[in-house]
Amino acid sequence: MNDERRTIRVTINGQVFERAVAPNLLLSDFIRHEAELTGTHVGCEHGVCGACTILYESQPARSCLMLAVQADGARLETIESLAKGDALHPLQTAFWEKHGLQCGYCTPGILMTMKAFLAETPNPSEAEIRVALSGNLCRCTGYQQIVEAVRHAAALLSAARVAP
């Protein structure tokens, strides 16, 4: 019915993606199908599971609840931005070492949420961690290990900050 398209420019992980898109294209689909960054997962597509969480202008947001056209001119970060080559980000190391994932479907959304959370709250209590995780569903782990992993990540990150 509406075949109008808009050309948008979106910066994802420092790279500019310019595409002509329909206004009803979800940002999550833009990231996965247009930018071909499939690390951002789509679980529910109605804002409940958190799997699609990205950083939108440094703030965690659900990419299934945004239109791609709204991100014209914006700066996004996805899970692909964390590791530098083969070097894992401390969050990834912590989740690996503490078994913070099983199938891994929820993990990208959780890591992006935790990246922003730990930047704001470097020494979180367990209660704060659980509240911060409340917007991300995990069907596998029972969360226990995720909480452990976040605590470990906080320690790794502060060690990295004081290291010369």
Binding site: G47, P60, L65, T113, A116, G135
Partner: peptide
């Protein structure tokens, strides 16, 4: 109100 991810938008 919701979660960090929903409140930031």
């Amino acid at each position: 109100v919701g979660h960090i991810q929903t409140r930031s938008r």
